[in-house]
Computed example of a mutant assay.
Amino acid sequence: MAYKSLLTVAASTEGVLETVTAAAGIAQAMDAHLDALALGVDRTQIGYSYVGSGAVVIAAAMDRAEAEAREAEAALNAAIGAQTSALRSSVESVVTQLGALTDVVAARARYSDLVVLPLPYGKSRGVEDEAVTEAALFEGMAPVLIVPSSGMRTPQPKRIILAWNQSRESLVAARRAMPFLKRADMVQIVVIDPPSHGPERSDPGGLLCQLLVRHGVKAEVSVLARTLPRISDVLARQARDVDADMLVMGAYGHSRFREAILGGATRDMLEKSEVPVFLAH
């Protein structure tokens, strides 16, 4: 079991080298092909304007988007060129309006086993970075590996934290991450404050652990108390305590609108993650 078709998307030059290096390492370890997409995004939203001015604004915005696409493509080519010559890869460049970005990314993510992206949040990130991540997850129906600015320690993570809350999203994430889980030396299923009256009240995480072990995964369960304000804080601390190489979790258990306004474990994790985060919805 392995990923055979990988995709990475760059809407800017920020974080390209770290993301491509991580994706290339996984591709080499699993004998996969890496597709890279450079995006130039027209962010203009033409509303009311003077007669004739709209065309000027659109033309200027498209010129800027084309320049950004060329910069992103050059960064992708440079990053791929820094990898081993045995890497099988291809680079494509696309210019799109922000409103059509979802369709562009989803059309490619649907035919990829894994999408590798940089952190979508931060001072240097734009609205298009979050849009790319959500397009791959929701419309592309692909698992997404988010690579932090520090990069990925190893293309075959040896110690993995698997966040489990009995939700559909976390189960999908566990199944989609199986190629990583089966290669790991230790997979710790972390359950935080399990409900006392839930279906797994007598054995939190036990059935998932059984499923993984039957697939040859070296899994164990760790039940933790919520001793910090946010779930993401507990997960981040546990990842540091066990020196984890990767965190696997279900993405957006609440609506994206609620996560954007009120916050949620997914957004909180992606805003400050120190380790690669594997997401699936």
Rank of each mutant, 00 (worst) to 15 (best):
I80S: 04
G99M: 01
M269E: 12
G205R: 11
E220R: 05
T21I: 05
S150F: 12
R214M: 13
L171F: 07
L212D: 01
A55K: 07
V41G: 08
F138Y: 14
L228W: 03
R125L: 04
V223G: 10
A100N: 13
L247M: 07
E128G: 02
M141N: 08
A74D: 14
E18M: 13
R230S: 10
S5P: 01
D203E: 15
G25R: 00
V275Y: 02
E139N: 10
A106M: 06
G205V: 15
E220L: 05
L162E: 11
T102Q: 11
R168G: 01
Q156I: 11
R237E: 15
L211G: 02
G140D: 05
Q45G: 09
S49H: 15
L212M: 15
K158V: 06
A22M: 11
L212H: 10
H281K: 07
A61K: 11
F180K: 02
E169Q: 15
P229L: 00
L6K: 09
D268N: 14
S273D: 06
D193P: 08
S112K: 13
G99E: 07
S12H: 03
G81Y: 00
H254I: 15
R125E: 03
V132W: 03
D113L: 03
L7E: 04
G126V: 03
G15D: 04
A107N: 13
V275D: 10
G264A: 14
P120D: 02
V116S: 05
I58H: 06
